[in-house]
Design a binder for these strands. Structure first.
Length: 806
DNA sequence: AGCACGCCGACT
DNA sequence: GTCGGCGTGCTC
């Protein structure tokens, strides 16, 4: 028997299956989808078995070393999905497989140096022999870490045979075990032994006594942890186990990230609108029919309840469901809603979990211990075998697009899997992506509309403030008069305010007023942002930091001034203008630590603050009854980005943020500050008019030949030398022009808005096309040709259907 | 990704 | 003459 194995090196030259002989004892065990360790070249690597066969065109086959799994980690469906994913996103097949699995299933490679001939080593390299001391082997990394100059003597010793190198492939997947203690003899016997124990064995007697006097001693098996918590001695228990009076078992345990008890909830009574939306979804499930529904519902229209009740139906049909939620709205609030309804049937997957916790949640899915998974983007690969429904909440969210290889969009994966399983997909959003809404209009998707909020609360009233007018009246503050007054008013009424600004840091750039020099990052083509807390200038692209100087590096004048406003500056302004206000600031800088995101939100929920000030991350999923005012400080910060989606993003963001106000009994109010108050994205968001926005934006997209009228491909090249990228970009553009049809438009090469990142110069080519059969073959060929380069050479990335043109 | 093979500059 | 730089090519 022969196995086809994909080696876990996501590079082009090894992106193909390698044949290996399967040793006799493995023949009944090995299945496609399992991981194996194999000899590869002169090292050992982990690989994925994709197929089994009887013959190979290669004669000198090596054998598989070991099987790493009992159960295939990739199901037949996922193996196939991975191939499709690699093809359609132009990446290595293993890269696709790795993206579908939890990180712990990746191998941990360790190089080990072994002493073969201690005497010779001591004679020829006493310094090396000293390092090894009495140990027979050392980790390569440890050995080299001490002294790089050792390399020469190590090489010499290797050649002389006094040292040898071995490759260790360690499986990182470890289940958590707990020690469980139980009685291994009868109570009578324990009593007897007890009486025979010497009085000096006080701790042992104590422990034994504890077990004897349990009426349920036969079925009593507490964890070691629990017993030591009771004050019993661990050593005494071990001694008793040695005497075979007690036994200790290592029991595999799922880590439980959600320890607190969650109250069970019952299905809510649906409004007519909700019931009308739910019915076709259930119908489609019952007919085992693949259909995509676009659930377009205003914020607060009760989409989640529709999700919950359709999942209920999935469970009744003994099927499984995947629910995708954007990472930032995967809050405890959200988890509680699903766990409350479905309890232990739910696994949760998000970035806040440790690697071990993620692995456990994944195993619950793989071993069919749960039927529902709620998770961020990668949960779309949940290894369910009988999917009945896939839900993507906030389907317009750009975080569903993975930004590194494989550059997939979870929505595309969802539709592909749902076709395999003949089940429906539900896309939900208050502000659908133009792509999805256009498909709904063309009846490719089925549109479900929810126009009313469940509790019949009116949508918040929205005021647009013209910041140009404020400027004219001499107000240079980040707050308009109107907004400031409203914040003060809420403070007095003990109500809460949410303020949104899409820029972190203090000032977005530092400029010399005398010569106009803007301080830029030495490694990137971008201005540095001033962070006041540490009094540093930081690059938001590469993380570079430098001290703030008082004088201009170019002209030496002391006219350096801060421009632009970030969240830190707003925070400072607030404490100056309204010193009594308690402010919580939420941005990448204040939520970097694990759990701080949740902690800040909880504090705000407990009304320990009056104002929540934040970036993107506060735009979604927040639901606090006391919030009656939402302020969007600069609604056009995104609008002027050179991106065809700028208006769409602005519209979505403003709508989402506005939706945070007045979700409960108290009426909500929204103030939008903008330098372009007449822009349709701002106006339509203020009027809660999606269709009007859609129509205007579609007209512009048609004019610019942008999605959803055309598909895009973005090819981005980087290299430390500008001339090298330019040349490669030129050649790629030529290849595209030569091989693609006339109906496709090829743009570039051009230098993108940020011309250099992390000391690498960038160039881009773009293709717009409607139907282009030659596209994927050409892109694969480009990848093959240009991506063979080494570490510092040319890097090529291909992004099909990019979400941003950065 | 590693690692060897292979062809040109500064050293014992 | 050799050590060693990193450009190219292969791993079932």
């Amino acid at each position: 028997m022969i196995a086809e194995v994909y080696i876990d090196i996501p590079a082009n030259p090894v992106n193909k299956p390698f044949d290996y002989r399967v040793p006799e004892p493995y023949r009944d065990l090995l299945e496609p989808g399992m991981r194996v360790t194999v000899p590869f070249g002169r090292t050992r690597r982990l690989g994925f078995v994709t197929a089994l066969k009887e013959s190979s065109e290669f004669t000198r086959l090596k054998s598989i070393d070991a099987i790493e799994d009992h159960l295939p980690v990739l199901t037949t469906e996922l193996l196939e999905l991975g191939r499709w994913l690699a093809d359609t996103t132009v990446c290595a097949t293993v890269a696709a497989y790795q993206a579908m699995l939890p990180a712990v299933l990746k191998a941990d490679y360790k190089k080990v140096v072994k002493v073969e001939d201690p005497k010779q080593l001591k004679k020829q390299h006493p310094n090396l022999a000293g390092l090894f001391e009495s140990k027979g082997q050392l980790l390569w990394a440890e050995l080299v870490k001490n002294d790089v100059n050792l390399l020469t003597s190590i090489n010499h010793a290797l050649r002389k045979g006094s040292l040898s190198i071995h490759q260790l492939v360690r499986n990182q997947a470890t289940a958590k075990h707990v020690a469980v203690v139980s009685a291994s003899v009868s109570a009578e016997r324990m009593k007897l032994e007890y009486s025979q124990l010497s009085d000096r064995a006080k701790r042992q007697k104590e422990a034994l006594y504890y077990f004897i006097h349990r009426s349920d001693s036969a079925t009593f098996h507490p964890t070691m942890q629990a017993l030591t918590n009771e004050g019993l001695s661990r050593d005494a228990i071990l001694k008793l186990a040695e005497k075979e009076l007690l036994r200790i078992d290592q029991v595999e345990q799922f880590r439980n990230p959600y320890k607190r008890a969650i109250e069970h909830t019952e299905p809510l009574k649906l409004t007519d609108e909700q019931a009308n939306a739910l019915a076709p979804i259930l119908q489609s499930m019952d007919k085992n029919e693949h259909r995509v529904f676009l659930c377009h519902g205003v914020t607060g229209s009760g989409k989640t309840e529709i999700y919950l009740q359709s999942i209920q139906h999935v469970l009744e049909r003994k099927q499984q469901a995947i629910v995708l939620v954007p990472e930032i709205s995967l809050t405890p609030q959200m988890v509680v809603r699903f766990k409350g309804r479905f309890g232990d049937h739910v696994a949760v997957m998000h970035s806040g979990l440790s690697r071990g916790e993620k692995y456990d949640e994944w195993r619950k899915i793989r071993e069919e211990k749960v039927q529902v998974v709620v998770g961020a983007r990668s949960a779309i690969f949940a290894p369910f075998n009988n999917l009945g429904l896939i839900i993507i909440d906030e389907e317009h969210e750009s975080s569903y697009k993975q930004e590194d290889m494989p550059r997939y969009h979870a929505r595309d994966i969802a539709i592909h899997r749902a076709q395999d399983h003949q089940c429906p997909v539900v896309l939900g959003s208050a502000t659908p992506s133009l792509e999805s809404f256009a498909r709904a209009r063309k009846q490719v998707y089925t549109l479900l509309s929810l126009k009313q909020r469940v509790n019949h609360r009116p949508l918040p009233s929205v005021h647009i403030v013209d910041l140009r007018e404020e400027m004219r009246q001499g107000n240079h503050s980040v707050f308009s008069k109107e907004l400031l007054e409203k914040i003060k008013d809420r403070l007095q009424k003990k109500e809460q305010t949410v303020l949104f600004l899409n820029r972190r840091g203090y000032a977005t750039f530092v400029m010399c007023r005398s010569c106009g020099t803007v301080v830029e990052c030495p490694h990137c083509d971008i201005s540095l942002t001033y962070h006041r807390a540490q009094h540093l200038l930081k690059c938001h692209y590469c993380g570079y930091e430098q001290a703030v100087s008082d004088t201009c590096p170019t002209c030496g004048s002391d006219a350096m001034r801060f421009f632009g406003t970030g969240t830190q500056k707003v925070e400072a302004e607030l404490s100056r203008l309204i010193p009594e206000a308690r402010v919580i600031r939420m941005d990448v800088d204040t939520t970097r630590k694990k759990g701080s995101h949740e902690r800040l939100l909880r504090q705000f929920g407990e009304e320990k603050a009056d104002i929540l000030l934040g970036t993107q991350m506060i735009a979604k999923g927040l639901d606090f009854p006391k919030v009656t005012l939402v302020g969007v400080l600069a609604a056009d910060s995104l609008l002027h980005l050179a991106d065809f989606r700028a208006s769409e993003k602005t519209f979505q963001l403003v709508t989402q943020v506005a939706g945070r106000a007045g979700r409960h009994d108290l009426p909500g109010e929204v103030v939008i500050q903008s330098y372009s108050p007449d822009h349709y994205a701002v106006l339509d968001a203020a009027r809660h008019d999606y269709e009007s926005f859609y129509n205007q934006e579609m007209a512009l997209r048609r004019l610019g030949s942008y999605p959803p009228f055309y598909y895009l491909v973005l090819i981005c090249l980087t290299h430390p030398e500008p001339a090298k990228v330019a040349e490669a970009a030129e050649r790629i553009a030529l290849i595209l022009k030569k091989h693609l049809s006339d109906s496709s438009q090829i743009y570039g090469p051009v230098v993108p808005a940020v011309a250099k990142i992390k000391d690498r110069y960038r160039y881009q080519c773009m293709v717009k096309y409607k139907r282009e059969p030659a596209l994927l073959p050409v892109l694969h060929r480009i990848m093959q040709h240009f991506q063979e380069g080494g570490k510092n050479g040319l890097q090529v990335s291909i992004d099909l259907n990019p979400v941003a043109l950065m």
